[in-house]
Amino acid sequence: MSERNPSGASGSTVSISELAGYFERAVGEERAAALVAEACGELGLGFGPLGHEQARSVLDRLTRREGLIGIVAGFALGRLHFARTVKSGKQFGEAS
């Protein structure tokens, strides 16, 4: 299976487009970009690269949405954590 994994390219920061990528397959790229922009705006974040904690806070904010969006955000949080764990060489279960 081949689907784009925005987390795969992440380094120490996460771009807005990477975050939106988590939502694209489920809600489409236009809505995905709007969702992330809305959440960034609500949190007073700019649209430049985000630190991991900021990225987590954006996804966490979106987990509060009803229905599919909240579920996708929860799934994305796990994927973001996984990407960081792999990147840093940490084992599962270690504090991040």
């Binding site: 689907e3 784009r4 694209e24 397959r25 489920a26 809600v27 489409g28 790229e29 236009e30």
Partner: peptide
């Protein structure tokens, strides 16, 4: 179809 880059869901 939902667009996701060059792919469609």
């Amino acid at each position: 179809g939902l667009a996701a880059g060059s792919e469609v869901t």
